[in-house]
C-alpha cells in the first residue's frame, strides 16, 4: 500500500538546477528546474532563445549537463546517453529535423522501435490508428512529406517504444491552424492514454489551454510556474510572454 502511494507521488521526470550549454564557458541553462508527474501534461513556454529546446536536449541526454540532476521515476539518470533513456521509457521529438529524411515512413517507424524489433507490427498498428495518414504512405521517403505529415511521423516514431514520458519540442511549429488543432488533439489523446507529456510550445495560449501545468522559461531560468489556466490569466505573464493581444480573449 505504502509502496503504491510512493510510486504515485514520485514524479516521472524531475530535473533540478540544470546548468547546460553548447560552448565552453557559456551556460544557456542557468539552474532550471522542472517536474512532470505521472500522467501529467506539462507545457514549457518562453521567448525565442530562452533555452526551451536546450532543456529538452539536456534532460534527454543529448547535451551534457554541467550541474544539476535529472531523475526518472526517482532514479538518477544524469549524464546517461539518450539511447539508454529510450530504453527506460522516454520518447523525444526534436524541434528540427525530426524524421530520417532519406528513410521511408516504414523504416522510420522501424527505427523508432529499434531496441525491440519484435514489437514492430503491434506498435505500428497502434500508431497508424492514431495517425491514419501514415498507413497509406509506408513506402514514401520521409523527406518528401509535408511539414504536417512529418510532424505526425515524428510523433509516431517516438511513440513506437510505448514511452511513459514523451518530450515534444514545438510539435505545432509551422503548421496551419487546422493542423495545429489536430496535433494538440493527438497530444491530448496520447496523454489521455496515460503517457506523461512535456511539451515545449511557441503557441503559448493553445499550449496553456490544454496543459495541466505550465512553466515559463526566460534566459535559462524558471520565470513562472503554475496551472496552465492560471498562467493564461496572469497579468505579468500576459504582458511579458503572451502579448497583450491575449487579453482580448
Amino acid at each position: 500500500m505504502r509502496a503504491n502511494k510512493r510510486e504515485r507521488n514520485t514524479p516521472v521526470l524531475a530535473a533540478e538546477g540544470i546548468v547546460a550549454g553548447y560552448l565552453p564557458g557559456v551556460d544557456v541553462l542557468r539552474g532550471c528546474s522542472i517536474e512532470v508527474g505521472p500522467g501529467e501534461l506539462v507545457g514549457v513556454i518562453g521567448p525565442n532563445g530562452a533555452g526551451k529546446s536546450t532543456l529538452a536536449k539536456a534532460v534527454f541526454g543529448l547535451l551534457r549537463v554541467r550541474a544539476g540532476t535529472v531523475r526518472l521515476n526517482g532514479e538518477d539518470v544524469t549524464g546517461r546517453p539518450a539511447h539508454e533513456l529510450v530504453r527506460r521509457g522516454v520518447g523525444y521529438v526534436p524541434q528540427l529535423q525530426n524524421v530520417f529524411a532519406s528513410l521511408t515512413v516504414e523504416e522510420n517507424l522501424r527505427m523508432g522501435v529499434y531496441l525491440r524489433p519484435r514489437d514492430y507490427a503491434r506498435r505500428a498498428a497502434a500508431v497508424e490508428e492514431l495517425f491514419p495518414v501514415l498507413a497509406a504512405r509506408r513506402r514514401q521517403k520521409a523527406g518528401s512529406m509535408s511539414g504536417g505529415e512529418r510532424q505526425m511521423l515524428a510523433m509516431a516514431r517516438a511513440l513506437m517504444t510505448e514511452p511513459q514520458l514523451l518530450l515534444l519540442d514545438e510539435p505545432s511549429a509551422g503548421l496551419s491552424p487546422l493542423h495545429q488543432d489536430h496535433v494538440f488533439d493527438r497530444v491530448r489523446e496520447i496523454n489521455g492514454a496515460g503517457v506523461a507529456v512535456l511539451m515545449v510550445e511557441q503557441n503559448a495560449r493553445r499550449c496553456l489551454q490544454i496543459c495541466h501545468r505550465g512553466y515559463v522559461l526566460d534566459q535559462g531560468r524558471n520565470a513562472y510556474t503554475g496551472r496552465g489556466t492560471d498562467l493564461l490569466h496572469d497579468e505579468k505573464v500576459i504582458a511579458c510572454y503572451l502579448g497583450t493581444l491575449a487579453r482580448a480573449r
Binding site: 539518450a82 530504453r87 529535423q97 524524421v99 532519406s102 523504416e107 527505427m111
Partner: peptide, 19 residues
C-alpha cells in the same frame, strides 16, 4: 537500416534508442 539512420540524422538515431 540503423547505419542509414545514423547517416541521415545522428541525434535522431540516438533519440530512437540506437547506440
Amino acid at each position: 537500416t540503423a547505419v542509414r539512420a545514423v547517416s541521415a540524422n545522428r541525434d535522431l538515431a540516438e533519440a530512437s534508442g540506437i547506440d
